[in-house]
């Protein structure tokens, strides 16, 4: 049997976490699959389960002048319908899993699952997202890349809950996302690419590039992005080989049942060049 708690409110949830070190379950679309057993038997959870998917306090989207704050238990489908969610994030979410899973799966769950192929991660890394973590007496905020430390690994403490995701408001005028999976709908990524940029007066004023499923965690390098700042179309064209080889050094995919090292690496770099040359430079003109 699995012991499970369904707290009436968020504060009770924190109390239960402190007392039981439970496993938080929001939508359960990853947990229930990974822990399923012989049909008819309960899934295996070594620790008690805490249901949090119904807690209103972490199902809200709050907007202020500088940030968008998304409750960790917001379902993916609800974000697609929300007027204030940035279009670049919606593009990503709309390609995640199936409508049924998006109805119950949450953004917080996708982050805490910390899969190298987690679909929401590259865009969150690119948008400088932070996560808000809370336990009974403490709230802390971390950049997402500090939160996720490896495949399936985060710095979440065993009595702590991810409560919200903070995305700084920025306006990008170039966005390019590509998820490469075996099938267009409902498949896991072999690799993914996210490019965001702002072009002002024929030059790049802001650029963010991230790669999913090609290393232990999402790849984003501010140092390499820096090279492209304030550059014109012509200058970028010249920089493509250098930038490409810098990313090549950090893209370290694996061979597995879905794809192989060579394809993942080659296509990631092809998408990078496609973004820089075909999307970005053509936009700069």
């Amino acid at each position: 049997m699995v012991r499970a708690y369904r707290p009436p409110d968020f504060q009770s949830a924190l109390t239960i976490m402190r007392e039981n070190r439970a496993i938080p379950l929001a939508g359960g679309t990853d947990l229930m699959v990974s822990r399923r057993r012989w049909s008819g038997l309960s899934p295996f959870f070594a620790k008690p389960v805490l249901f949090i998917g119904h807690l209103e306090e972490i199902k809200r989207v709050e907007i202020d002048i500088t940030n968008i704050k998304i409750g960790s238990a917001c379902s993916l489908a609800s974000l697609l319908e929300h007027r204030e969610i940035p279009e670049v994030l919606k593009i990503v979410i709309s390609q995640m899993a199936t409508p049924a899973i998006r109805n119950i799966g949450t953004l917080g769950g996708n982050i805490c699952n910390a899969s190298p192929a987690g679909d929401a991660l590259p865009v969150l890394y690119a948008m400088d997202a932070s996560v808000v973590l809370q336990r009974k007496a403490e709230i802390r905020t971390l950049p997402i890349e500090k939160f996720i430390t490896g495949p399936g690994e985060t710095v979440l403490k065993d009595d702590e809950l991810l409560t919200s995701i903070i995305i700084p408001k920025k306006s990008y005028n170039v966005g390019f996302y590509r998820k490469v999976g075996t099938r267009q709908a409902n498949s896991l990524s072999k690799l993914s690419f996210q490019g965001l940029a702002r072009i002002e007066e024929g030059k790049i004023s802001d650029i963010r590039i991230s790669f999913g499923a090609v290393a232990m965690t999402v790849i984003r390098s501010r140092e390499i992005e820096e090279i492209l700042i304030e550059k014109s179309g012509k200058e970028i064209e010249k920089l493509i080989p250098e930038v490409s080889s810098l990313y090549s050094a950090v893209i370290k995919p694996i061979d597995d049942q879905r794809s192989n090292i060579r394809y993942r690496k080659t296509i990631s770099l092809k998408l990078l060049r496609y973004f820089l040359r075909t999307v970005l430079i053509s936009k700069i003109g």
Binding site: T182, R183, Q184, A185, N186, S187, L188, Q257, R258
Partner: peptide, 14 residues
């Protein structure tokens, strides 16, 4: 590929 997550078959949208 021993699951339908990894052994992908066409769906009606394909």
């Amino acid at each position: 590929q021993d699951s339908i997550t990894d052994y992908i078959i066409p769906c009606s949208m394909y």
